[in-house]
């Protein structure tokens, strides 16, 4: 039994973030919502005819399969050229379309995956660790994009994250999960909840910002120039 006593509601125009330590059952819960895993008890009630967009945790396309970014996006099905170009422009990946999907960077791949999920015209967008493997600047950009999607696409967003601080800024509701729902609510309330503190308490103090200056610069190839 991975999960017990889970109660979860996502409204349109709302970002719900699932947080929790490794092995808390975040991905399992997401798979239950998506219908990939059947719950042993309990019920998932979805609005009839609801369309879901899914952004999986990472993607590895074997090098022996030739696949451009554009062809990958077309696999979403039922997409016409206009819609595709609109989504591609929205996520700023126009320049990547003819690149092999194996050759793009981590941050670019996340945006491509997000585009694929949007092409399904989802009512509910499920994002499993959308900023995984992306540097801090890239993370902020991705979060900005996700918030923009919430505001413009009229869909609910369920997001999994193990980052507790960057997420909270944009999120409407947080669910803190560890085999069961420890606490949930608005980010500000969750932050002060005793169960949250016992799970993650004290962590911020252990992290510090490292301020430093470089005495050199890098050119585009990575070489050092002074």
């Amino acid at each position: 039994m991975v999960l017990t006593e889970v109660d979860l509601t996502v409204h349109r125009g709302e970002i719900v973030t699932l947080i929790g330590p490794n092995g808390a059952g975040k991905s399992t819960l997401v798979k239950v919502v998506l219908g990939l895993v059947r719950p042993s008890a309990g019920k998932v009630s979805l609005q009839a005819g609801i369309r879901m967009g899914y952004m999986p945790q990472g993607l590895l396309v074997e090098p022996f399969m030739p696949m451009s970014v554009k062809r990958f996006l077309q696999l979403a099905g039922n997409t016409n050229k206009k819609e595709l170009q609109k989504v591609v422009a929205e996520l700023m990946i126009e320049h990547l379309q003819s690149s092999p999907i194996q050759a793009i960077s981590g941050g670019e791949l996340q945006r491509v995956l997000l585009a694929r999920a949007l092409l399904c015209k989802p009512d509910l967008l499920v994002l499993d660790e959308p900023v995984q493997g992306v540097d801090v600047t890239g993370q902020q950009e991705l979060y900005k994009l996700i918030m923009h999607i919430r505001d413009t696409h009229d869909c609910g967003i369920l997001m999994v994250s193990h980052d507790l601080h960057l997420v909270m800024a944009g999120t409407d509701s947080v669910i803190c999960l560890n085999k069961h729902v420890c606490c949930s609510g608005h980010p500000a309330t969750v932050r002060l909840h005793p169960e949250f503190l016992s799970l993650f308490g004290g962590e911020p103090e252990r992290l510090a910002l490292y301020e430093h200056k470089h005495n050199h610069k890098h050119d585009l190839g990575g070489g050092v120039c002074r």
Binding site: L34, P56, L59, R116
Partner: peptide, 11 residues
């Protein structure tokens, strides 16, 4: 072939 779960979610 690219991603089995993603394909399942897409029907």
């Amino acid at each position: 072939t690219v991603h089995e779960d993603l394909a399942k979610v897409e029907g």
